[in-house]
Design a binder for these strands. Structure first.
Lengths: 157, 157
DNA sequence: ATAAAATACATGTATGTACATGTAATAAAA
DNA sequence: TTTTATTACATGTACATACATGTATTTTAT
């Protein structure tokens, strides 16, 4: 049991930031890594990786209907994820059932199996629990954070 | 030229968030991916990956002195990075010089080469430029964001 | 001084990212 | 209708992550 290193300066052992904006960039990257690590540790006992969990969560959104690869990819957090290969592994574990598309022969369509649904539910409970215990942020702060993050990304590209 | 998708709801095509806190978690992960993609695209023309750039930046902090693997690893944003192998690639490109430690034979110590310093400087200029043009956040907002992110991580673990 | 423990790093494997390219099915154009 | 373009996905490669394990060197304990 030890106190988590809070300050970015400690986490990456540097205090030479050009600006608050540059520091914010690093802070977002570091916090994302921290959050990801947090849930990965929990997911491991369910035999899932972060991205496999993400795909299961997305599939649940349409359950018991099927989704094609493209629809899943569009909902992934990391857009360059190679969805077909993540699904390969979920199919091997029988958490997802994959069949050829009917009205469009190019598509492969996926649905959660009963096992997939059940693993998803227990792992989600576990992650919610950990977040509850570890991510210290009230609703008001979370809303402020959401606004700031969306502000960052608002420029044309 | 198109307008960047701002809202997380659009980015991951979902609006079923359990709470602002859960949404904030996803928002951080997505924004980190967005930032990373932004700089990766620029780094590519310098033949660098995100993590290789991070190592060069860290080495510059002590330049022209050397650093060992452990010191570099402690400063990485993603703590599970496999520093020895990232360095392998930088050595091949002659951006970093690696030698055996003297006062401790277990260590390998690294320093930037002149080429490494020069690539680092031009790529840093390019990235600063892109951030300036794309990351829309003023200093006050950035400071608020930094506080919120550090607040998230403040719990014991 | 010798054995045991710890440290610093290298290496191996499964999985994922980022991106290029290939292939079959569908849609659009001539 | 036939050609051409596009779409949806599969596959390949280089690099990175996450984690386990191996190896040499140093430190500590006996």
């Amino acid at each position: 049991m030890y106190i988590c290193i809070v300050k970015l300066e400690n986490a990456i052992q540097s205090n030479k930031f050009k600006s608050e904006v540059q520091k914010a960039g690093l802070n977002i990257l570091y916090t994302a890594w921290w959050l990801k690590t947090l849930s990965c540790k929990e997911l491991k006992e369910f035999g899932l990786t972060h991205e496999q969990y993400n795909v299961l969560r997305i599939l649940k959104g349409k359950h018991p209907n099927q989704m094609c690869v493209k629809d899943i990819a569009g909902r992934m957090i990391e857009k360059n994820s190679n969805v077909p290969r993540i699904i390969d592994r979920l199919v091997v574990k029988k958490l997802v059932k994959r069949t050829q598309g009917e009205h469009d022969g190019r598509q492969t369509v996926m649905a959660l199996t009963q096992a997939g649904l059940s693993v998803l539910e227990s792992s989600t409970n576990k992650i919610d629990e950990i977040y509850e215990a570890t991510v210290s942020l009230n609703n008001k702060d979370a809303a402020a954070l959401n606004n700031l993050l969306e502000k960052i990304r608002e420029k044309e590209k």
